[in-house]
Amino acid sequence: MRAALTAALAWQDYRADTWLSACSVLALVAVIAPLLVLFGLKFGLVSSLTERLEKDPAVREIIPLGGGRFSAAFIAELRQRPDVAFALPRTRQIAATAELARGEGDVGLTVEMLPTAPTDPLLGPLPALQGMNGVVLSRTAAEKLGVRPGDWLQASFGRQVAGRSEVQRTRVQVEGVLPLEAFARDALLAPLELLEAAEDYRDGRAVLAMGWAGGAPTQAGQRVYPAFRLYARSLDDVEPLRRYFAERGLLVSTQAQTIAQVQSLSRNLSIVFWIIAALALAGAFAAIFAGALAAVERKRRELSVLRLLGFSTAALLLFVVFQALYSASLAAVLSGVLYGLAQAGLNHLFMQVPGEYASHLLPAHYGLALLATLGVSSLAAALGGWRVSRIEACEGIRDV
């Protein structure tokens, strides 16, 4: 009850000193608003860069270099690692090509073939392929062939045998088209079985599943792959995976350096922000501390009268703290409004990609800024207003 009365009296006195109160609010706004803008730029810039990297599957891809010899069991073991989002064997690159055409006599387009399966990061929201004849085309290949999802194509696989050319064909259905940013070359994503069939046919082996004649078919479990498609689960998993392969003498290509640059930028910007924030908060603390000292001296008569009326030292100190909290609360609200206007202007000027922000803050950041402002103001006012303990009730009696 006494605290509520103290808060009410402090508010009435705060309103009476309109100009002094306004000056204290504006002094805090001059500190808080620039800090919000600075942190908003830091958080928005780093978040946008990080989100852009996370959306690009190529950044999380681990590409083996040189000719390797990987068994299906080894790649299945990689797939079980918690830091691996997707792993699938790849056939020899020279054998992983196909010529696509809309029909007999149409001009064909030679595309590279990539194995795919459910959870493939390149597929994104596209559904998993159904059956051995379902394929996904890159945007450039689909545009050159003039096809859309649902259309059928003829895929041809050629080989040279004893100096003569031979070709086998199969029908495939386009079940999806990749966005251009996902894959910029002419490509066909197909089940691994189709790539293995093309490789076996070009090696002169029979492909029983397709009805293609040849030599002895490849036995289950005996196939050796020269490479694989592998994607880390997150950006932080890329470097550990690179080290994992390096420890086993496997040379791989990653985007670890690009990821490290963004993470380093985030750390450096955080250091700069906290240095500036510490200096600004120290200045605000000093200003509030000095303001509390001045307020106690300026209102010494009024505070002594309150002492005479039975207010304790704690209540008088609370009186000073409440007034500092009023200034801090109003300053926080005004700073939030000013930051909102600055954020809208900055995003309008510098936003390059829809959905990304040059400046951005989360609700939690506003809450943290409010708590920090109230905390610093309370502490500074409490320390600066401690001189109320020296005010005696007799001072109020002498002034009556």
Rank of each mutant, 00 (worst) to 15 (best):
L88R: 05
V305C: 08
K42M: 14
S335T: 08
A213N: 07
V388W: 08
S359F: 01
R298S: 09
P179G: 04
R390L: 14
L20V: 11
Q168M: 10
P82F: 06
A381I: 11
A382R: 12
A10H: 08
V321Q: 03
Y357P: 00
D13A: 14
E61Q: 13
H365G: 01
L78N: 01
L49N: 10
A216S: 12
T140E: 14
P149W: 04
V37A: 07
A216F: 03
V25Q: 02
D237L: 07
L65M: 14
A187P: 04
V31I: 15
T140I: 06
D236C: 00
R15D: 09
A381C: 11
F273A: 14
G211L: 08
P191N: 09
S359D: 03
I62Y: 00
R307N: 09
T254Q: 10
V25H: 03
V46G: 02
R205H: 09
A197G: 06
L371K: 01
A277N: 14
D13K: 07
V337W: 07
R52W: 01
V376S: 12
A76D: 15
I32H: 09
H365K: 03
R52P: 00
S329G: 13
L265H: 05
P363E: 10
E196M: 12
T97F: 13
A76W: 00
D236T: 06
G158R: 15
S24Q: 15
L137E: 07
S312T: 15
D237S: 10
R164M: 12
A260H: 06
L306K: 06
N133D: 15
V238G: 02
Q80G: 10
V136P: 03
E302N: 14
R301H: 14
L251M: 09
R15C: 12
A280E: 13
A287H: 13
L303P: 02
I276G: 04
V305K: 02
A7E: 04
M132I: 13
R229S: 15
I259G: 01
E54D: 14
K144D: 09
L241T: 02
L318P: 01
T140K: 13
D13C: 07
R15S: 05
E54V: 14
R307C: 03
D237R: 03
R92W: 09
R185M: 10
D106S: 11
P57C: 08
L230W: 08
V262Y: 06
T170E: 03
F311D: 05
G249M: 11
V337A: 13
F157E: 01
I94D: 14
E143M: 13
Q222S: 13
A328V: 07
A101N: 01
A33D: 08
G396Q: 10
T140C: 00
E181Q: 11
G158P: 06
L45C: 02
P115M: 07
R90L: 11
I94N: 08
G131W: 05
L341N: 02
L145V: 09
L195Y: 05
W212K: 01
A117F: 03
A381L: 13
A278T: 15
D13P: 00
G40S: 10
S253P: 00
A369W: 13
E297M: 12
